[in-house]
């Protein structure tokens, strides 16, 4: 089954068996790309959307000097360019970070689903709104948090997203990203990321071993990140550490 992680454990939006079967039937192709491959470029007309099955992908923008800002990271279960269905072109590039397997869903199929199953279209809409919520959190991260807070926030968010997708036990998860990737996510230099990772380790908040992340002190890391997972709309986020922001 290709859709088992899509909207898994999302509040009020998880798929029922019929909805899952309909999306499975809409898939026209399953492809695997090597790491660091561009699969959609800004401005190119698109006729398909992409469901990520395995691996990690990114959306990014480059500045005039060619320096990159990753503006979104996608994990298995993310329908990562569903917004291309109404927009038809993207305003950013999409690329793999690791080897990635994706399922392609033609826009014509999404059009058919809209007619046949309006409640399912509402859930696809939910998925794009979830992307927007994550973008807001990324703005908060870059606008309000210091270097340690930014990395801590990304790790808390990733843990929560992977927990929801069934790929973290709530404290430990695989994350095959480089320090350069983290730098491009957090708006830091690679050496700054290296220093932050050491600080997080020395403060016994988080450990990094090759491509594994272990959160040693979930509450401490969430506090450093000012992280509250409410924006991820996870059905049961009671196991995830959180801080309350002032109202």
């Amino acid at each position: 089954m290709f859709t088992e992680r899509f909207l898994r454990d999302k509040r009020g939006a998880s798929l029922d068996a019929n909805e899952r079967a309909r999306i499975e039937a809409a898939i026209s192709e399953v492809k695997t790309f090597g790491p660091r491959k561009i699969i959609a470029r800004a401005g190119e007309p698109l006729t398909n959307s992409t469901l990520l099955l395995e691996g990690i992908m990114s959306r990014y923008l480059d500045d005039r000097n060619g320096l990159r800002q990753l503006v979104a990271i996608h994990f298995p279960g993310d329908f990562l360019d569903l917004h291309a269905f109404p927009l038809k072109v993207l305003d950013h590039d999409v690329a793999t970070l690791t080897t990635a397997t994706v399922a392609t869903v033609p826009h014509a199929e999404i059009e058919a689903i809209a007619k046949e199953m309006p409640q399912l279209i509402r859930k696809l809409w939910f998925a794009t709104l979830l992307d927007a919520a994550i973008h807001r959190a990324w703005l908060f991260r870059l606008g309000r948090l210091d270097a340690t807070g930014r990395v801590a926030h990304f790790l808390c968010e990733t843990n929560a997203r992977l927990f929801s997708a069934g790929l973290s036990d709530g404290r430990r998860f695989a994350l095959a990203l480089t320090q350069a990737d983290l730098a491009e996510i957090c708006g830091l230099t690679t050496v700054h990321v290296n220093r932050v990772m050491r600080q997080l380790r020395e403060e016994q908040l988080c450990l990094f071993r090759s491509s594994l992340v272990e959160i040693l002190d979930p509450a401490g890391l969430a506090a450093r990140a000012q992280f509250n997972p409410a924006y991820l709309y996870i059905a049961d986020d009671s196991q995830l550490p959180s801080v309350q922001r002032p109202r």
Partner: peptide, 17 residues
């Protein structure tokens, strides 16, 4: 200073090398 570089952390969201 660390490793021949200067790190500026804070105030607020300033984080530069």
């Amino acid at each position: 200073a660390e490793g021949g570089l200067v790190f500026l952390d804070g105030p607020d969201s300033i984080a530069t090398t």
